[in-house]
C-alpha cells in the first residue's frame, strides 16, 4: 500500500488515519451537542436547593 509492503507499517498508518477520521467524525457529529448540560443543570439546581435548605 502506497509503496509500503510491510503490513506492520501500513496498518499503523491506516489506524492513525482512521483514528483521526474518528475524531473528525465525532467532533463534527457532536459539534453543537452538549450531552453534559442536563447533568450540569441537575447539579446546579440540587446545589441551590441544598444551600437554601442549609
Amino acid at each position: 500500500m502506497f509503496g509500503i509492503n510491510s503490513c506492520g507499517i501500513w496498518l499503523g498508518y491506516l489506524l492513525a488515519v482512521l483514528s483521526v477520521l474518528l475524531c473528525v467524525w465525532y467532533g463534527a457529529k457532536k459539534w453543537n451537542k452538549d450531552d453534559d448540560s442536563a447533568a450540569d443543570d441537575n447539579w446546579d439546581s440540587a446545589e441551590t436547593q441544598l444551600n437554601e435548605n442549609l
Binding site: C23, Y26, G27, K30, W31, K33, D35
Partner: peptide, 18 residues
C-alpha cells in the same frame, strides 16, 4: 465551559497530533 467544547476539541486535537 461544557461537554460541547470537548466534542469540538476532539476534531481539532486529532488532526493536530497526526
Amino acid at each position: 465551559k461544557s461537554g460541547r467544547e470537548l466534542n469540538r476539541a476532539v476534531l481539532v486535537g486529532g488532526i493536530f497530533i497526526l
